[in-house]
Amino acid sequence: MSDLSPEYHYNVIGRAIREIDAAGPGLTLDALAQRMGMSPAHFQRVFSAWVGVSPKRYQQYLALDHAKSLLATRHTTLAAADGAGLSGSGRLHDLFLTWEAMTPGDFARAGEGLTIRHGWFDSPFGRAIVTGTERGICGIGFASETGEDAALDDMLSRWPKAQFVHDPALLRPWVLQAFGARPGQNADTPLFLIGAPFQIKVWEALLRIPSGHVTTYSDIATVIGHPKAVRAVGTAVGRNPISLLIPCHRAVRKSGALGGYHWGLPVKRAILAHESARADAANTAM
């Protein structure tokens, strides 16, 4: 694979993000570039082009109190975001998302009669298990904290009566779009939501949170018309099957604490840092 290809670059950036997160603020540019097998100048150019800021600046976004800063400066009340819907800054990596949901009756049958394709892919946040039907992506999970076997079992167990087929070829175009290996291509990325009606209402609310912003579980409960159901909302957020594209990582506690994340808090921190860096870079360029 050419070192000029998008796939090569996002694999490098994924490794670099994990190195930065593991090493903390003491990791120098020279040491990081050496680990990536690149010169410092070349690595800085590649990283800045993909993440939007320098590796040093990105380290600041990974600070543990970053979520509190986001809550103070980029707290989105979803009622106010309703008008924007999925447009403008709500896009993820300049993608358009289209989605449809399984009917409640189909959901109750636990995927019976449904054929779900699955495959493993590299992402900027570690190895990812992706599932989908002909109608769109229905699941994304990350294995860097849980391990691949556990992540695969977790994802496939969500629809116990479905037929599963290993078929990464069907999913690959959508996956490359979702993980940013085809930047600037604004083709629709279809999602197929498989969940109970209450869960889908919560996931729809998550889709309204703009990239680089956060909201709280209580805000979500309010906007879906169940202000006292904060705990149930938290459970639905945690059961979101399509990580990253349905941005459950943008939901935090009122205190600014990250709360939980099904695939591990280091993954949540890395995604929030990545989106914040891109949002700041875009605002600076305006």
Rank of each mutant, 00 (worst) to 15 (best):
Q177G: 10
A162S: 11
M155K: 03
T115V: 13
F179Y: 08
G111I: 00
A128D: 05
A110H: 14
G88S: 02
L152R: 10
L95R: 12
L176K: 04
L92Y: 07
F179I: 15
L97F: 13
G141Q: 01
A101E: 14
R91S: 03
G105F: 05
I200F: 00
G119W: 09
L193C: 07
G105S: 11
A196E: 14
R172G: 05
Q185H: 10
A151C: 11
A110R: 13
E204F: 10
Q163T: 15
Q163S: 12
L156V: 14
E145Q: 13
Q199I: 04
E112H: 12
P104D: 02
T146C: 03
G90F: 11
G141T: 01
P197D: 03
L152S: 05
G105L: 12
L176H: 08
E134W: 05
H118Q: 11
I194G: 01
W159Y: 13
P160S: 11
G119F: 08
I140P: 05
K201Q: 15
F179Q: 08
N186Q: 06
K161S: 12
W120V: 09
Q199T: 04
M102I: 01
R127G: 09
P190F: 04
T98Q: 02
G139E: 13
D188V: 12
S87R: 14
L191R: 01
Q199R: 07
Q199F: 04
K161N: 09
K201F: 00
